[in-house]
Simulated assay, not measured.
Amino acid sequence: MPQRTEPPRRAALNHSPEALRWARRAKGWTQRQLADVIGVKATSVSDFERGTRSAPPDLLIKIARAFRCPVSMLEAWDPQDREASRVLDQISALVRPANREAA
């Protein structure tokens, strides 16, 4: 009987897909808009948000600058973590004024 092989394990992500998606939506941007700002294809942003691909450190910095938040706010988020909720509130506070300026 042939041996069963396990699928390759994915490398750990260097960002939180949930935090990235949340921050983009809080800003009111589409994936394409974020992609244009950081200089990648919309499919890359989709991959980052689905967690199928890690965002390179230089892109995390660009994303954080676009959202006016520290990179650390995009690095780790557990939906069950109360501290994470506080961090997302901080992102929201930083992102929302940018929405008003653009209006």
Rank of each mutant, 00 (worst) to 15 (best):
Met1Gly: 15
Met1Ile: 07
Pro2Val: 11
Gln3Asp: 13
Arg4Cys: 04
Arg4Pro: 05
Glu6Thr: 12
Pro7Arg: 13
Arg9Phe: 05
Arg9Leu: 14
Arg9His: 09
Arg10Thr: 09
Ala11Gly: 10
Ala12Gln: 14
Leu13Thr: 06
Asn14Arg: 13
His15Met: 04
Ser16His: 07
Pro17Gly: 09
Pro17Glu: 05
Glu18Val: 11
Ala19Gly: 10
Ala19Asn: 07
Ala19Ile: 08
Leu20Lys: 04
Leu20Ser: 05
Ala23Thr: 15
Arg24Cys: 04
Arg25Phe: 03
Arg25Ala: 13
Arg25Pro: 00
Ala26Cys: 11
Lys27Asn: 08
Gly28Asn: 07
Gly28Asp: 09
Gly28Arg: 08
Trp29Arg: 00
Thr30Val: 06
Thr30Leu: 03
Thr30Trp: 02
Gln31Glu: 13
Gln31Thr: 02
Leu34Asp: 02
Leu34Ser: 04
Leu34Ile: 10
Ala35Ile: 03
Ala35Glu: 04
Ala35His: 06
Asp36Trp: 06
Asp36Pro: 00
Ile38Asp: 03
Ile38Leu: 06
Gly39Leu: 06
Gly39Arg: 06
Gly39His: 04
Gly39Ser: 05
Lys41Ile: 03
Ala42Cys: 01
Thr43Trp: 03
Ser44Gly: 02
Ser46His: 13
Ser46Ala: 13
Asp47Gly: 12
Phe48Ile: 00
Glu49Cys: 04
Arg50His: 11
Thr52Cys: 01
Thr52Leu: 11
Arg53Ala: 11
Ser54Tyr: 03
Ala55Asn: 00
Pro56Gly: 05
Pro56Ala: 12
Pro57Lys: 02
Leu59Phe: 10
Leu60Ala: 05
Leu60Met: 15
Ile63Asp: 02
Ala66Asp: 03
Phe67Tyr: 15
Arg68Ala: 14
Cys69Asn: 00
Pro70Thr: 02
Pro70Ile: 00
Pro70Asn: 05
Val71Arg: 14
Ser72Asn: 07
Ser72Ile: 07
Met73Ala: 14
Met73Cys: 09
Glu75Thr: 10
Glu75Phe: 01
Glu75His: 04
Glu75Tyr: 01
Trp77Asn: 07
Trp77Cys: 14
Trp77Glu: 02
Pro79Met: 07
Pro79Phe: 08
Gln80Tyr: 08
Asp81Lys: 00
Asp81Ala: 06
Asp81His: 08
Arg82Met: 08
Glu83His: 12
Glu83Val: 11
Glu83Trp: 11
Glu83Asp: 12
Ala84Val: 02
Ser85Val: 09
Arg86Ala: 14
Asp89Asn: 11
Asp89Cys: 08
Gln90Glu: 12
Ile91Pro: 00
Ser92Pro: 00
Ala93Trp: 09
Leu94Glu: 13
Val95Gln: 06
Val95Phe: 09
Ala98Tyr: 07
Arg100Gln: 13
Ala102Tyr: 07
Ala102Thr: 12
